[in-house]
């Protein structure tokens, strides 16, 4: 009874959710295919064209609309996201490993780490900038911003790994020690291969969070901007469809990233399913 009564509201909710999730992207996608360089955003499209995509890569004759100043910013953001991903994931794995055993004040430390996810980003950015000024440290995307990004993404990586270790059967590690293998080599040869799906998820989290991070970067990046800052900067002048074209491309890049993640995940889930079968039989 209740099931069928809830059915339509739930369907409507899901529909709305999907609409609000994808409609903005759809609009952006459509707008990116208008002709240029004259005229602002227009809807519906009169002439379909790939002009703004060519404009993005400097393949159009010079015009009133300047090329997007994003080449360097893109490289910076990708580099920063990559470094953040590696650092946060390594730290997340190590600290989750430490939390497998209860230690003194482990509860307090846990909440202190997780609190990092809740603190407003603008405050963290501002605070870091003030601290850097106070200490006489110059602000750069690769120094102060990097630190705030790691601090921001580390709790996510930590929580993902904690959940993975929670379900981890430690007797396989003990079996390895018992065969004369040191804990360090056991970690490399047994633990790491088995927690790999979790490591992938932690990496994806850290990368995407860092890649489009705005408030923490705003005050800490110094002169050279990251991609989100650079794009925001162009808004304050005038919005041209080249932004939309770029939005489409960067979203496609994210999808590609997800596809790689999905592929690697499928491979390790195949392995994990075999683990599950093993546990069922017992």
């Amino acid at each position: 009874m209740i099931r069928s009564a809830l059915r339509w509201p739930l369907a409507a909710f899901t529909g709305l959710f999907l609409f609000f999730l994808y409609a903005p992207f759809g609009v952006l996608g459509i707008l990116s295919f208008q002709s240029g360089p004259e005229g602002g955003p227009q809807f519906p499209i009169i002439h379909w064209s790939t002009y703004w995509y060519r404009h993005l890569f400097g393949l159009t004759p010079p015009s009133r609309v300047a090329p997007l100043p994003i080449g360097d910013a893109l490289v910076r953001s990708l580099t920063l996201a990559f470094l953040t991903m590696v650092t946060a994931t390594v730290l997340g794995v190590i600290s989750a490993q430490a939390f497998r055993e209860k230690f003194r004040f482990s509860g307090v430390v846990f909440y202190l780490i997780v609190l990092g996810m809740i603190v407003p980003g603008v405050l963290v950015g501002l605070g870091t900038a003030l601290l850097a000024n106070h200490l006489g440290v110059a602000r750069h995307w690769w120094s102060t911003s990097f630190v705030t990004h790691v601090v921001y993404t580390f709790p996510f990586a930590f929580l993902v790994m904690l959940a993975i270790f929670n379900r981890f059967d430690r007797s396989v590690e003990e079996a390895s020690w018992s065969l004369g293998v040191s804990p360090f080599r056991t970690f490399n040869k047994v633990t790491l291969p088995l927690i790999f799906p979790g490591v992938l998820s932690a990496m994806l989290f850290a990368f995407t969070l860092s890649y489009d991070e705005f408030p923490r970067t705003l005050f800490t990046a110094g002169g050279a901007q990251t991609l989100p800052l650079a794009i925001y900067g162009t808004f304050s002048i005038e919005i041209h469809p080249n932004i939309f074209a770029f939005g489409v491309l960067t979203t496609l890049f994210s999808f590609a990233l997800l596809a790689v993640y999905g592929l690697l995940m499928a491979l390790s889930v195949r392995r994990a399913r075999r683990v599950a079968i093993q546990e069922d039989v017992r």
């Binding site: 390895s176 065969l179 546990e279």
Partner: peptide, 28 residues
């Protein structure tokens, strides 16, 4: 444990799921 001359057989056997039978046996 790795420096004691003992081997342990666990109730759930604790085989390495990412290795074949031969690799499991060969591991040590």
């Amino acid at each position: 444990p790795e420096r004691r001359p003992t081997s342990t057989i666990f109730q759930n056997f604790a085989l390495f799921p990412h290795m074949t039978v031969r690799q499991n046996i060969e591991y040590g």
